[in-house]
């Protein structure tokens, strides 16, 4: 009897929540396989034609290359800066540490539109070249809070006695850093880099201000195509993007664990 009541009380929530979360993804993937020329749910056969035309479109291939370059560079920059910062925050003893930690989260709180506008003006002022340098720097700022939070939460469990043990056994500081500290931090850093890659790969809002014709990223193309007219090709492109992100996340998960 209670079993039945639990079901009645929670099944609507389960259906509603997972529908809201997952139906959009399923639809994008399903419509990329349609035989129609409009993005419909395929009921009369499946085709991979839209993927074929996708990979014959030089503009889209270029955009995928640009996105991959930007996301990889962002992962490196945000991963390094975020890990350094998180490490400092875990170890340092300073007053108002929590206030500084809140500051690190600012890029998360301020709308990416503002970040984009501010960065474009600032980049122009400091003569940071348009294209890759501006996009990568802006993306690393947007990803920084996430990298910081993830690496910090992982480092809190770092047993500092490992370093002491290494030094007591006779290793010098440099050896301890390279043989103990870095191998222990590395998985946390890789997890952070992964997040940065994924954020950069899908970022649209700030990026729209910073792209140039030769550095157009995939989300920009998807947005423009949504505005101009729908073709199942957008679904195919979006599905490809999803596939790349999931492959990267699985790979990263393997490496970091």
């Amino acid at each position: 009897m209670t079993e039945l009541r639990t079901r009645l009380a929670f099944y609507p929530a389960i259906v509603l929540v997972y529908a809201i979360l997952l139906v959009p993804l399923v639809i994008v993937i399903a419509t990329s396989l349609t035989v129609q020329s409009a993005p419909t749910i395929p009921t009369d056969g499946l085709t991979l034609d839209w993927y074929v035309s996708l990979f014959q479109n030089q503009r889209l291939i270029d955009a995928m290359i640009v996105s991959t370059i930007v996301a990889s560079a962002t992962a490196v920059v945000a991963g390094i800066v975020g890990t350094i910062t998180a490490f400092g925050f875990v170890r340092a003893e300073v007053r108002m540490k929590e206030t500084f930690a809140t500051l690190m989260l600012l890029p998360l709180m301020i709308s990416p539109v503002i970040t984009g506008v501010a960065f474009l003006r600032f980049g122009g002022l400091l003569a940071i070249p348009r294209g890759y340098p501006q996009i990568i720097l802006a993306h690393s700022i947007l990803a920084l809070p996430f990298v910081f939070l993830i690496v910090r939460s992982r480092l809190l469990t770092f047993d500092e006695r490992l370093e002491d043990a290494s030094m007591i056994m006779g290793a010098n500081r440099l050896e301890t850093t390279f043989n103990v500290t870095i191998p222990v931090i590395a998985p946390a850093m890789i997890a952070g880099m992964l997040i940065a890659f994924v954020i950069s790969f899908g970022e649209f809002t700030a990026t729209q201000f910073l792209v140039t014709p030769s550095t157009t990223t995939v989300p920009i193309i998807i947005f423009n195509q949504i505005q101009t007219g729908l073709s199942p090709e957008i679904s195919a492109l979006a599905t490809t993007l999803v596939a790349i992100m999931i492959i990267v996340s699985v790979l990263g998960d393997r490496i970091s664990s």
Binding site: L25, V26, I27, V28, G202, E203, I222
Partner: peptide, 9 residues
């Protein structure tokens, strides 16, 4: 999954 793709869905 990129947020733009979810809105598109």
């Amino acid at each position: 999954v990129a947020i733009i793709i979810r809105y598109f869905g």
